[in-house]
Each structure stands twice: as C-alpha cells, then as structure tokens.
Design a protein around this nucleic acid. Sequence first.
DNA 1: GTCTATACGCGGATAGAC
DNA 2: GTCTATCCGCGTATAGAC
Lengths: 195, 195
Amino acid sequence: MTDKSTTRHQIVKAADLLFYHQGFEHTSFKHIANDVKISRGNFYYHFKTKDDILTAVMAQRNADTTAMLDRWELEGKTPKDRIRSFIHILITNKDDIKRYGCPVGTLRTELAKLDHASKGEATKLLALFQAWLRRQFEHLGFSENADMYALHLLARSQGVSTLANAFNDGHFINQEVKLMEEWLSHIIDAAIHTT
Amino acid sequence: MTDKSTTRHQIVKAADLLFYHQGFEHTSFKHIANDVKISRGNFYYHFKTKDDILTAVMAQRNADTTAMLDRWELEGKTPKDRIRSFIHILITNKDDIKRYGCPVGTLRTELAKLDHASKGEATKLLALFQAWLRRQFEHLGFSENADMYALHLLARSQGVSTLANAFNDGHFINQEVKLMEEWLSHIIDAAIHTT
DNA sequence: GTCTATACGCGGATAGAC
DNA sequence: GTCTATCCGCGTATAGAC
C-alpha cells in the first residue's frame, strides 16, 4: 500500500477524477495543478510526461478494482450474491454514472479512439470484471455458457451506464438493475429444472 | 437534398468520419484538410469555426437517421420486423463497430465530457431511435411498457457495441443479436398468452 | 520538493493575394 | 472559391533558482 498523502498520490487521484469527468485528452496539467494546488512545473519532478500520469492512474485503478473484486468474493455467500454485488454498483454509483457514465467504459473508449499506448491497460480493466464474472457463473455450474453470460452482463451494465448518462435518468438504472436480477434468477432456475 | 459533390459537403462527410474514428477534439483542421485535399485556410470560407462543422455534421446525421428510420418503417411489414431492422444494424455495421464502437453513442459520450454546446444534438440522435422504437412497441400493443422496452433495447445495443469494440469481438455481436431477437419474440409471445 | 521563467510546437482563426 | 502567410493562445515540456 502506497502512502496516500504524498503529492504523487494526490496527482494520481486528481488526474483519475479529471480523466473520468472531462476526458483524458481534454485534461491539461493546469487542470490537475489547480486541483492538487501545486505549480505546473512541479509536476515533472513526479512524472516525466502526461502519459506517465495515465499509466499511474491505470495501475491504481487496476489495484483498486482487484481489491474490490476480492472483497465481493469474500462478502458474498453464494455466486449469485456475488454477481448481484456487480449488478448493484450501478445503484451505488448512480449519481456519478448519470453525470459521467461508466469510468471504465468511457475512458477505454476514448483511449481506443486516440489509439493511445494505454488502451490495452484500459481493456484489461474490463477483462478483470469479465474473468471474475465468468468464474462466478462457473461456480453456479455453467461450464459452457459462463463466458457468454459474463460478457452479456458486462454489456448490459455498459449499455445502462451509457443511456443513464445520455438521458440523465436514474430511474432507468433502477429499472434495468431489476431486470438484470430477474434475468440472473431466471437462468439459475432454468438450469436447475434442466438437471 | 443538398448537392453531395460540393466542397462543403465533402468537408462534412470527412469530418463526420474523423470525429467517429478519432474523436471530435482530437481531430484537427489539418486532418480534415488532408482528407478533403484542400488547404487549411480554405476552410473558413465554408465554416467560421470548428464548432460550426460539428453542427453541420450533427444536422447531416439527424437527416440521415430520420431517413433510415422512415425506410425501416416502410420496408418492415410488422412492428416486429421493424424492430428487427434496428437490432440488425449491429450485424450490418459489424466491422465499424468492432473498430470504432457505435458512432452515435461514442460521439455523444465525448461531447458530454467536453460539455460541448452540441451535446444536446447528439442526445437527440439517440432520442430519435428511442421514440421510433417506442412507437413500434406501442403498435405491438404494449401501451404501458413501450418506453421501457425501447430504452432497454437501445441500452443493450449500446452495451454490445461497447464490448465488441473493447474486445474486438464480432462473434459476440452475433451472439447478442440472437439473444435480443429471442427476447423480442419472448415478450411478444408472453403478451399474447396474457390476453 | 516546489517554485518561476521560458522554449517550442500545434491548433484554431484571420488577412489578403490570386 | 481556393490559396499562402501569419497571428495568437494554449498545452507539453525544460532549465534552473530557492
């Protein structure tokens, strides 16, 4: 665990938020410097280039996401509970999603368009969720369809974020979360009745 | 119908593609000028600012989308057929979606982050699809849930585009299109059995 | 470790010749 | 209607004082 009070960490934290809120390319050193309350020149003591900041942001996100998935793994008693933890981040982060969309999806899309060196890291973040979900579905007994279900759920979550942001609609999130939970219950029930 | 051979129209067409492929902010006059093969200065005879170009692009997209929806309306014999036309653009545009995501969704997300004046126009484009889908569901007899179904389908389409782009996965598109068609048949069947 | 001053290039935008 | 030349501000990045 790195010390969270260091200037370096404050830069990473501020940059992460700004990249999420305004986009990576649009965010300048000036923006970050204002938030962290340091001078623009001071930056280059901590990071050589803007891309280096992005690299640090991606590493931090990766660590945070991994920690969150581990936590869900511990807290959820059943795979179904754990998958519901995933579905419910849409509710937990509702306000941010309405305002800025999904932090993972939107940044990845931007970096892909810029053909940025870190776009692979951004995709890894999505893959982290995908692999975790797949494991949960496997534990539910879906050996064959686990991967399909994981991607399906991830896609629905992305779509909900995109539209909730576009129409600034929190009610829609609640509605879709309910549908996802029903879908989850349904495929589990259907599997039981087949065996 | 405006003359498609004019320089003005060529600029709009080139800009539209570049905004889609590389993003609006990242695209410079140089990029567009290279594609259209005119000098940078010549631009300002046709458009006063970069934002003016975007406005023209959005107007063109709006017209094109409206025309496409009208065409689907005529070609589809039943509302179900028409909704399937919507679902199938994912297949039709598969290659572009894999490479660049959904043109409507990704540009809208970018403009929202930039808090750009045209972000409302971009949202209107999504709303065009939404209203059209809602009407189809209403024609199917869903008076109460028509809006929910329209948003649901739109969200799934957005999510599929996002992930197909992230994982560069065309097979996933086929898979999800099939699931959407099954979902459509299912809600129609369920409604019949209730009445 | 943090600051100020500054170099440098790029992108948007203007002026004016042809 | 298209061109070249040019201005200007901003953003990244560097140098060097404190």
